[in-house]
Design a protein around this nucleic acid. Structure first.
Lengths: 352, 352
DNA sequence: GATCTAAAAGACACCGGTGTCAAAAGCAAG
DNA sequence: CTTGCTTTTGACACCGGTGTCTTTTAGATC
């Protein structure tokens, strides 16, 4: 509600204007802006008034230059899943809303051999305070080292601990996948198929581990023929569905490493006239919008991605976000994913 | 492939270091950086060499300060559709990839009464060169005026011309919706339902116009009972589906103003045992990932959103993007949407 | 009132670039 | 070798803030 100057593209007032109006030196104004404690209440109020009268907003470039530090944090991602990126982004923005920070978004191409150079140039140019690395690029150790070398703070977001807690935000995917599988087993499923994520993805490996552990705990194991590779794409789900559902003894339930592939499996089932969930239960992972937009709605694992965005921002720049953003010493960087049961899961045929 | 300094968080070289190494004044280095023409080839080469030796990267904050202009462009959005935002973002990044520009992302809450103040503060703080407004906030005239007042360039992205060509990028939604509807009519459909987008959205109005025009051209009209309101959400699609498919004489085809609502209508059809496309054809709008992830796959209108991102960036800052980013005088700011036919469309029952 | 001390305010250089304008260098013509 | 002009280069102030150090002010004590 600060009073405004005329607008009309007129020049923004500077710290000098404020100083002149308040009848103090610019350094004093600077002290007020930065909440210095060595300033008398009377002066502070006078300066505040001048600031409001002029509608003064400190120039962040000048501050950045003088502070030798930019009030920017960067989000680096190479993500096939738009919703995830955007939700995370939203969380970060929630966290930095009332601060002086702004968010810079930078997609990177992990396939390119110039990737490291690109990121280096970007970081050298923009000099953000810190960078947040989303999976799968968070799994790249060279990238983390690069940040370290450049003096840029970083946080790696992942499905498992990738680094020490100071540089890490993750979720307990493995356990929750286990929970989902135990649910299938409890319903009576014994032949449970698995569609894997792409090789080289930590998230894919974690989900597979959780899956196998849960089977093993129940004295079951994953038959080779019930295993399908994948790459997190819909088409891989189609292929996996074709493979698993053409078997003489097809699985009665299939766990897919993400929702997109689950949607692919489901459409193969529809095409073959296999009822979901009557004859086939399906579980996905991500709780993407697709999960609720397909029919029947998909049971899946919800990743606390927005909260992870908040947490990542706090981990990175708690010191810029005010006292209640501080993360208590020793607090775990692992946030809880949850299994969300929807229509796509039921007891196997003949067990209802 | 520039040679690197040691790294290790050591200080970045500055323009002074380069000048010293090359044995010239810093102003001369500045000329090289900015490709000034008043410089001899010999000096230029010497300076270039010094730059490469040191791995010098100009400090953008200092430049921003001296130029009185920040090398940032902002993307303002309040968008329910993550994929759209991200695709657009990607297009913008394609366009600015080899430039000095960076992208700042800023979601805004169009519901909040502080929205204008928030945006104003943001723009005053960051002082981007320009801002891109995505729908629906692109339809807000006050926001455009605010940019104007603050001397921030702007581009409004929309489904129809919202402003003069200098401030506008749009797509020809109306015509393409017409094309889709004509296709339905050509297949033999006569009872065609319509699910509308939210009131106050220009895009929703455009789609409805296109729909009604095409019907009218064929001598048909939209029966009141075949009309359902909506808000672009899946649940609205469910409600619309319940309404339209419970009629004594339900429509044989339904046009939905976006894919999400189409997915809702489709799941109602599945639930009622109505075959898609055998007994009901469905068309959506957006070509979101959902469109290909549901079964049967959804016919829809593809918005050239990534291209619109490229175009928006060029419209905004062609002068920063090199000569081939210039938009030829008089080129239309309207990009072509296309009708994408998939499985969800067929002749009406009994007409096969 | 004089003296001492701590708190508050200011002077001035500096962050790393660019703009302006003057000086130097290069070159052709006289 | 001058002169006159154009091209190239440099000196210096400046963009709008902050850091450091000094000076001023206010209050306490004698």
């Amino acid at each position: 509600m600060a009073a405004r100057t005329g607008g009309q593209g007129g020049k923004q007032p500077t710290i000098n204007d404020v100083a002149a109006l308040a009848g103090v030196s610019k350094k004093t104004v600077s002290r007020v802006i930065n909440r210095s404690e060595f300033i008398s209440e009377k002066t502070r109020i006078a300066v505040q008034k001048a600031i409001e009268t002029l509608g003064f907003v400190p120039n962040p470039q000048a501050r950045a230059l003088a502070f030798r530090r930019n009030f920017l944090i960067a989000l680096l991602h190479d993500n096939p899943n738009a919703q995830t990126v955007l939700n995370f982004q939203q969380g970060v923005l929630d966290a930095i809303k009332d601060s002086d920070l702004a968010l810079l978004v930078r997609p990177v191409d992990r396939g390119s051999d110039k990737m490291l150079d690109d990121v280096r140039t970007f970081l050298e140019k923009q000099r953000p305070i810190g960078a947040m690395l989303l999976p799968p690029i968070s799994e790249n150790d060279e990238l983390a080292r690069l940040c370290e070398d450049l003096g840029v703070r970083y946080v790696r977001v992942g499905s498992a601990l990738l680094d020490d807690a100071k540089h890490c935000v993750s979720s307990n995917d493995r356990e929750v996948v286990g929970e989902a599988v135990r649910r299938l087993i409890a319903l009576g499923h014994r032949r449970i198929g698995f569609v894997r994520g792409p090789a080289g993805f930590r998230s894919a490996a974690e989900r597979e581990k959780g899956f196998r552990e849960a089977l093993a705990d129940a004295g079951l194991s994953l038959a080779d023929e019930h295993y399908a590779p994948g790459n997190y794409r819909y088409t891989a789900g189609i292929e996996a569905g074709e493979k698993l559902l053409s078997l003489a003894e097809p699985p009665t339930a299939i766990f897919c490493s993400n929702d997109e592939m689950a949607a692919g499996v489901m459409s193969v089932a529809h095409g073959k006239g296999i009822a979901v969930p009557g004859e086939l239960s399906i579980i996905g992972f991500d709780d993407s919008p697709t999960a609720t937009h397909i029919w029947p709605t998909l049971s899946t694992v919800r990743w606390p991605i927005r909260d992870m965005g908040v947490r990542a921002a706090r981990t990175l720049v708690a010191d810029f976000l005010g006292p209640n953003a501080r993360i208590p010493e020793g607090e775990s960087p692992v946030l809880a994913s949850t299994f969300v049961e929807r229509q796509s899961v039921a007891p196997p045929a003949g067990k209802a």
